[in-house]
């Protein structure tokens, strides 16, 4: 970033920022750390896997759209609690959520991901990629699982996940922002907080760069999700219109 426009922020201010973002993250996570610890990490048995696989394509799509929408509602609440987000104009709040909420859902997915079994918590148990076969987009599902696995390998703490999520939501390079400069200021401050928390947690020097690489991977996954949805909608327009959650359609339906 341009040194001249970087805000000057004290260490105490950065500490405070990390604390408030982490608090908001923990308050708005769909599953609390204690709940996760109590989960038995139980995988779907084969008969249940087959039952998901034999669902009609549109029924499985609808189920996944509902699950994604539930997760996104928590992300909206997280965004609202980030300092400065609600001071942005409503156009920009919506632009940032439309572009960034699914990215945060994908980042949060690593909290619910079992790397050893390549499975994610879904509909009550842990599901491997094969559970999602009926969706008819195996490549996208495999990429989402690969992403979750690579996020897990970074072993981010909750405060690092929180600040990285805020950093993603406050991306100043989204199209259609009206007050880009204001978003830029917020994002720069959040980036300083991210650097600060990584240093404080004694991360290696390349940690921030590794997270930057995740940003482009997330953008590509979200673009592929939109393309896959639009291909599905071309075949099942009525299913999307009448059975998909309104929020999901607002965010991705175009």
């Amino acid at each position: 970033s341009d040194g001249d426009t970087s805000p000057t922020v004290s260490m105490a201010e950065l500490d405070h920022l990390v604390q408030t973002i982490s608090k908001s993250h923990l308050e708005t996570c769909q599953y609390l750390r204690e709940e996760l610890q109590q989960m038995s990490w139980q995988k779907f048995p084969q008969d249940e896997v087959e039952s998901y696989q034999s669902k009609p394509r549109e029924v499985m799509w609808q189920l996944c759209a509902v699950k994604i929408t539930e997760a996104i509602q928590y992300v909206v609440e997280f965004a609202k609690r980030i300092d400065g987000f609600m001071d942005l104009c409503q156009n920009d709040q919506i632009v940032l959520l439309k572009a960034g909420s699914l990215e945060v859902v994908l980042v949060r997915m690593c909290r619910l991901f079992d790397s050893q079994n390549n499975s994610v918590y879904f509909d009550g148990k842990f599901a491997g990629p094969d559970v999602f076969r009926a969706l008819g987009c195996d490549d996208l599902i495999a990429s989402v699982f690969d992403f979750a696995s690579s996020m897990c390998s970074l072993r981010l703490s909750e405060d690092e996940l929180a600040v990285f999520s805020a950093f993603l939501l406050l991306s100043a390079d989204r199209s259609w922002l009206q007050e880009k400069l204001q978003v830029e200021k917020l994002q720069q401050k959040t980036q300083l907080a991210l650097q600060h928390v990584l240093q404080k947690n004694r991360r290696e020097d390349g940690a921030l760069n590794k997270l930057r690489c995740k940003v482009s991977a997330l953008r590509s996954l979200c673009t592929r999700h939109t393309e896959t949805l639009s291909a599905f909608r071309a075949v099942y327009p009525d299913v999307v219109r009448t059975h998909f959650p309104p929020l999901y359609k607002e965010l991705f339906g175009a």
């Binding site: 308050e27 708005t28 539930e70 509602q73 928590y74 909206v76 609440e77 609202k80 609600m86 409503q90 709040q93 919506i94 959520l97 439309k98 309104p246 929020l247 607002e250 965010l251």
Partner: peptide, 20 residues
């Protein structure tokens, strides 16, 4: 505004309609 009715509602509500 009509296009993003739910998002507007979620942003304006003091708490979102999820059981947080």
């Amino acid at each position: 505004k009509e296009k993003h009715k739910i998002l507007h509602q979620l942003l304006q509500n003091s708490t979102s309609p999820v059981d947080l």
